Measured scan of single mutants.
Amino acid sequence: LVRYRTISKIPQITLNFVDLKGDPFLASPTSDREIIAPKIKERTHNVTEKVTQVLSLGADVLPEYKLQAPRIHRWTILHYSPFKAVWDWLILLLVIYTAVFTPYSAAFLLKETEEGPPATECGYACQPLAVVDLIVDIMFIVDILINFRTTYVNANEEVVSHPGRIAVHYFKGWFLIDMVAAIPFDLLIFGSGSEELIGLLKTARLLRLVRVARKLDRYSEYGAAVLFLLMCTFALIAHWLACIWYAIGNMEQPHMDSRIGWLHNLGDQIGKPYNSSGLGGPSIKDKYVTALYFTFSSLTSVGFGNVSPNTNSEKIFSICVMLIGSLMYASIFGNVSAIIQRLYSGTARYHTQMLRVREFIRFHQIPNPLRQRLEEYFQHAWSYTNGIDMNAVLKGFPECLQADICLHLNRSLLQHCKPFRGATKGCLRALAMKFKTTHAPPGDTLVHAGDLLTALYFISRGSIEILRGDVVVAILGKNDIFGEPLNLYARPGKSNGDVRALTYCDLHKIHR
């Protein structure tokens, strides 16, 4: 019993810090008490220290592992850092350059016999395009090294910054494609005289377009951006097909006994025919423009016929181009109408809503002055909100995010209106959640004399007048207030005048 009563005193000691020596009952000389009392004092002292730490809000209350900052290894790049964003855009520009100039170089340097010394005699450094290609190869190699040090988000939505895990993730992902696209074939085969082989191998750079397509997928929600990307894709495919079309004609031209190829026909049409040795002929500019003209006309199913396939190889390629053109029509131009419709969806919704308003007016036989006010209010409210119901949009977000959005939407009023000066951010967040926005066209009466005042109004834009009878008592403008002081009276009061809008007004109100 003594032991039980001794232990039962522990909660009292913990909360009230009572010393055991003052209790005459606990001072009985028993061996059990002498053993338990020192333990009680020690526990009391420890609990006292913990309570003191909690009340003082000291940093040592938290466990040590929670006080440590997340460790980022040296030379690790955050995937959302500004440097990584700028670097990704730079790589994107280099990939676009590669997609345009690599097929052009591979096709127009394929057994090209233009006048001038061969590239091997001039030297590697004197070729501007080769120098640019070398810079692109170096940048792609540097990009691989950067990807080995860039964080990523795993399946659990955690940012991984450990170098080993980053390397394994990159090896399992895009490393092989990036490595093949970054191989400097110019340096590996330079001086061997195989410019045709170098041009063909350099087309491996186009593998990076797969990554670019995935990154550009984030802009699919913007109709104008999608339309622009589709047109660029169409032009890029036409450019690639033009390079292939020229390569076919250029390879067949020296081996044909009869002059029936499209390059021969082009030379005869523009007065620059090929001679018996295969030299001469149109310039590279004429060849490229004509090839691009043929691919565009074939892809769009126009086909004027002034550039036509004559050999079997050219006919087979033309059939493939027609098939590609039909697929592009289905996948690209078939979506253009939907994209344009999405661009004008706001206008369509406006006309639909206006039609419903006019049908309501016609069905209920609203008189002319009231009908005009109804239409003007709808037009003004639509121009202010673009038909978007803010309350319906915010309803799907958590309250903390709703408060931040409301604070942002009402920031101008909260910053410049005098009653809100000096208020804490928590108070402003709470008030912003209570605001209701209303609009009024010129001549609209917001409050009639004798109406119950259940709200306090803040003028965000425009001006109003307060009338008693036919006498203008006051004219209020931006950041002015009218209405009933909230919670100042037990019952809502009545208006002693009319409140009429002089201009288009936007008002925020808080109800009782």
Rank of each mutant, 00 (worst) to 15 (best):
A69F: 10
A69H: 06
A69I: 08
A69D: 14
R71W: 05
H73M: 04
W75H: 04
L78S: 07
F83A: 11
L92F: 01
V95H: 01
I96M: 03
V100D: 01
F101Q: 07
T102W: 05
Y104Q: 01
A106W: 05
L110G: 13
P117H: 07
V136A: 12
I146L: 07
I146E: 01
A155C: 15
E157I: 12
H162W: 07
H169N: 09
A182T: 05
I183A: 10
D186N: 12
D186R: 13
L187A: 09
F190R: 14
L197R: 04
I198Y: 10
L200S: 04
V212A: 06
S220P: 05
G223H: 09
G223P: 07
A224P: 14
A225E: 04
T233G: 14
A238H: 01
C243E: 01
C243F: 01
I244Q: 01
A247F: 13
A247T: 05
N250E: 15
E252S: 01
M256S: 15
S258H: 13
I260N: 07
W262Y: 01
W262R: 03
Q269S: 05
K272M: 03
K272R: 03
G278T: 01
S283R: 01
F294T: 01
S297E: 01
V302G: 01
P309F: 01
S313A: 15
G325P: 01
S331G: 08
F333D: 03
V336C: 01
R342L: 13
R342C: 04
Y344R: 04
Y344T: 07
S345M: 13
Q353N: 03
R356F: 15
F360I: 02
F363W: 08
F363S: 03
H364W: 05
Q365H: 14
Q372T: 13
Q372F: 11
L374P: 03
S383L: 08
M390D: 05
N391R: 05
V393H: 01
Q402M: 04
Q402W: 03
I405W: 02
L413T: 09
A423P: 02
T424C: 09
R429E: 01
A430I: 07
F435S: 02
T438M: 13
P442N: 02
T445Y: 12
H448L: 06
A449I: 08
